[in-house]
Design a protein around this nucleic acid. Structure first.
Lengths: 122, 122, 122, 122
DNA sequence: GTGGTCTAGACCACC
DNA sequence: GTGGTCTAGACCACG
């Protein structure tokens, strides 16, 4: 898994890790059931403290994206169970989109262009 | 300009102000060239520290959305100034969209649904 | 005895086994004096390490729910043995109830609703 | 706020703090809107690390019991917003009750006694 | 002066 | 060998 961290960013490192994992799942780079690197391994690889990685994994677990297990490490969730909080997630997503759309509008990006960008990314 | 602040939110107050201004510009509530409330006026109206409002205005200026002038206060930037910063904003915007799209994908939201949400918001 | 384990749960496997046995005794599925599966049999059936089952049995024995005998394996405790530990259990149970009731109260669940839930479960 | 920690318990300290706060809210010892001790103050008073208190506060915040705010510290939530996850909470509560009821049954506690205990605690 | 983040290093429960 | 917890002490963003 590719993980590039920006230590100067105002986005916390654990959040950046969380985002990278979510993107990797969406991309298919991480398949459902597949195991993630161990906390220690990822920490060493990224040159950060293991507690920071731990925090990211706990966040992902809480959001339902992964499951953690003392014996087998962390693994990508298998879909069901994630559906539970889907409606709350959808609302949060729409809230985020609202700002994105406003910014696009102000910067002269047409609806068509926006849809094109999304189509490319999806 | 309507400004509703959520003091319990994780989003800093100055960021909320910045977002509200961007949205107001996108909505057309704030027209290019139009003057914004003075720092002090907005601070008093919202019941917050004027340093916070100042920080929001500086951020908006740095992003190219507004211009400030010691004598006349702040005003919404008109065409050229905004266009200059637009390309940098476009790249950052695409970066943000990447995460949104990934989250939507993982949460089972189809491309069609996503486009529909955007169409409604635009 | 039906034993469904959730390997993704935060509750340790040995605790899940312990809980399942207690529930089975409460339901009457396991009668006083009745023998439990051997450690090895249960371990193989559930696909887990026998050390884990052993730990669960030792916990149940310590709590006074079952008795173990090198020759005959484990069996559900009958009257007297269970009664001895009951008073200690009663106190611990009240402690657990205290938290449950507090959470119910804060979450707007009335006393009547709570009693109804218990009546249904008993 | 009375806070007694059991360092020998297998319940994590941050969880014990979380439970104490929930109980204090239910008891009315902590009123909606009332401020909690600062992270540092509580840590020093209890003789533990501030990160542990921080973890407890974040858990309480995530569960909707309190709000945190860099300028004013942590405060008890004002009810609305907590109602959001009520149905999920209710289900979790029923799950916990299921085990409690089973244990009560096995230990010879009648339904009447159980209801009496709850009535006293509520 | 508040909560939030991060570090370096330790110990523990689980299996 | 895994994740989970805790410590002691530091720095930062926010207002």
């Amino acid at each position: 898994m590719i993980l590039t961290l920006d230590f100067a960013s105002d986005i916390p490192i654990y959040q950046q890790i969380r985002n990278a994992v979510v993107r990797a799942i969406a991309d298919g780079q991480l398949q459902p059931g597949e195991r993630l690197p161990t906390v220690r391994a990822l920490a060493q690889e990224a040159g950060i403290n293991s507690m920071t990685v731990n925090k990211a994994y706990q966040l992902l677990k809480q959001e339902g994206y992964i499951t953690t297990d003392g014996r087998n490490g962390a693994a990508v969730g298998s879909g069901p169970g994630r559906a539970a909080a889907a409606s709350a997630r959808r609302q949060k997503l729409e809230e985020e989109l609202k700002l994105i759309v406003a910014e696009a509008k102000v910067n002269g990006i047409s609806l068509g262009e926006l849809e094109q960008m999304i189509g490319k990314l999806y």
